[in-house]
Design a protein around this nucleic acid. Sequence first.
DNA 1: CTGTTAGCGCATTCAC
DNA 2: GTGAATGCGCTAACAG
Lengths: 334, 334
Amino acid sequence: MVDLTNLGAPTISQVAKAAGVSRATVSRAFTRPDMLSAETVRRVTAIAKKIGYVPNHTARALSTGRHGNVALVVPDVANPFFPPLIRATQVEAEKHDFCVFLGNSDENPEHEEKLVSRFSTQVEGFILASSRLSDARIRFQAARRPLVLVNRDVKGIPRVLMDSGAGIAEAVDHLARLGHKRIAYISGPSNSWSNAQRRAAIQRRAKSRALQVLLVPAQMASFQSGYAAAPAILDYGATAAVAFDDLMAQGALAGLAARGVAVPGDFSVVGCDDVLGAITYPPLSSVSNACSEAGRVAVSLLMDILKTRVVRDVRIILSTSLVIRNTTTKVASG
Amino acid sequence: MVDLTNLGAPTISQVAKAAGVSRATVSRAFTRPDMLSAETVRRVTAIAKKIGYVPNHTARALSTGRHGNVALVVPDVANPFFPPLIRATQVEAEKHDFCVFLGNSDENPEHEEKLVSRFSTQVEGFILASSRLSDARIRFQAARRPLVLVNRDVKGIPRVLMDSGAGIAEAVDHLARLGHKRIAYISGPSNSWSNAQRRAAIQRRAKSRALQVLLVPAQMASFQSGYAAAPAILDYGATAAVAFDDLMAQGALAGLAARGVAVPGDFSVVGCDDVLGAITYPPLSSVSNACSEAGRVAVSLLMDILKTRVVRDVRIILSTSLVIRNTTTKVASG
DNA sequence: CTGTTAGCGCATTCAC
DNA sequence: GTGAATGCGCTAACAG
């Protein structure tokens, strides 16, 4: 049973007194050491350290308007797609000496906007990953605070997009070469930009390679949805499937196995995002994305806006490619 | 190309002027409406809404010392163990109208402490999950700010522990019943509390059931480490293995398969944490944990400290149990 | 180079 | 019930 009454951290004034200088000097020792004599800086910081003084971020923020925080909002932390992005954002932000608030919108637009409002007074900018907000709401928020989008394409708002197109096309080519004639696309969330893009890419390429493609709809990007897609795919007579993401691909793998279909023996599966590929057996062929890079780029875009105070209509495309592992082989003869 | 010069949000003064009241009244309308006449509150809030006024979190924090933020630090966001914990923390914090900072320590004690210092001036409390800090450093930090531990047992610091013991014992019993005589434990990080606890539980139970157990060391809890453990396990002549976590179990699965050992045909595998079990094929038997609950409990513990200003030596144990799926069967006869 | 003076936006004593 | 004053801890002109 410990008393917590004395939680007051040492302030700038205490350091100033102990060092026999003014508070401004202490402040400068931490923010503009170049304005002080080396000796003064040394002495002040030494005393600060001894006392255990740490600049108070809140006070600094109130005074400068800069909090040194950014907010990252994702639809679902638990979706394996996001952790690498979260981590990269975190690491990159730290390089710029920024902290990151994390928000989980639960795929819910209202909730997402509530989070944004809640964060807005304590961050200098936002990164919205796979935002579920409407274009209008995104524009509205972007007018209030610097805002960068990941995997969401709104004109005028800085955005970094992972172009699955290239990787998807590769995947279709790969399947065509292996002799597959009928393939399926296991869709992701209908309001997802990535899904629209992937679906379009697969249809386009399938057409040019004269492949038949079945579109299997799904509500959510979950293992369950992938599992549930198996029957429709088999009924259609497809011999290969591309899933919206690795999670669904895993689900499909399980759904197929449950119906006695061997992968890659009888059927080929390709995932997307390449977040699970290396940790499953058999290792999943997948269209790699650039999640970490997206996080890094998004942060630097944001930092750039913060620095220049100007937001440009940038649209950065990160390319993808197919990673061939063991879930894709030649179509079973017969 | 948009100019961002006018980012200044409306302040309490503007509302006061527009409403023809003092700033104190506006402040009260938001924090202590009971002190004002209903009519005044109505009028002030109406005007505030019209102007688009939102109380400035930073200024409020500086004035009151309460920021309404908590920090959550985990060793590795990408480890599937943590996302459910992160999400639960987030959700629970939100219920109390708190925002959460997320920190990723990269399993590095120095980095972890750096994060803590960096956050310390803008949060009211910390939740450290699977902290890599020394007991001494944890105590030091806990003396400065309210601090709750998850899966780390330091006397005097409020902590919530997932007792894998019960589930591990179940797993050993289960394997013993299936006829296994020699089993292996694929260790996790040596400085992990959970690992120590799991290893101890398995040794204890194995002894009482007269099973031989091989301890396979590992540096990190990764797929690779699990994969690399396979040869040693096979050489030892074990017919089953329990892994420190699901990720390593997956790795072991792959490592075994690569050497032509079928699971569950020739060998049984049990994971821990049950985060991957339902999304793999074959579905992994695993010792379930209570990550989400841990997150919830940790937050409420923290809120309790914040409210009462008193920290008690609480030690909450969350139990676990074995979830039997398809990677465990009778020992191959012969 | 360093000290002095003024706020940043808000909550909170006191008075009235 | 409401207003006037004060300070949270710090940075940013402005002097010297």
